[in-house]
């Protein structure tokens, strides 16, 4: 008998994750052309209104650009950077699914990038969001 855990393990990734990955790959490619290097990319599926928090060690004096891409079921992706004390130090102000924001930390330390599926298209329940951290 299949257990719930087994079912979860074999469940395919959210179909929109490929869309979000394709979008972020194009964004990262464009960023590279502008002299940015990539630390990493990651993708996850979020419920409407939910958020992901990624901890990062950022290096003092390095300029970072944070980029996100939602799949077509996400209307607005929120993108925020918090410092180790929980203060917002950078955010994107656009209302769309492809936000970005820049930040140059004054000190090496722990920061958090938060991506949120702020609003969805047509009442979709979930959406995929890819996030990339680039620097130069």
């Amino acid at each position: 008998m299949l257990t719930l855990a087994t079912l979860l393990l074999v469940a395919p990734a959210h179909a929109g994750e490929d869309d979000a990955r394709t979008c972020i790959q194009a964004k990262v490619h464009q960023a590279r052309a502008e002299g940015w290097s990539v630390r990493t990319r990651t993708t996850s599926t979020l419920q409407a209104g939910a958020l992901d928090v990624y901890a990062m060690t950022l290096q003092a004096g390095i300029q970072y650009r944070f980029i996100a891409c939602g799949d077509t079921s996400v209307a607005d992706v929120g993108l925020y950077v918090y410092d180790g004390e929980g203060r917002v130090v950078a955010r994107d102000l656009s209302v769309d699914r492809e936000p970005h924001t820049d930040y140059t930390p004054p000190a090496t330390g722990r920061y958090y990038v938060v991506v949120q599926a702020v609003s969805m298209v047509g009442g979709a329940a979930t959406g995929a969001i890819s996030t990339a951290v680039t620097y130069k």
Partner: peptide, 12 residues
């Protein structure tokens, strides 16, 4: 933040 943080992009 700490309670929800994922470490996937932590390392420089």
């Amino acid at each position: 933040l700490e309670a929800q943080a994922k470490d996937v992009i932590l390392v420089p």
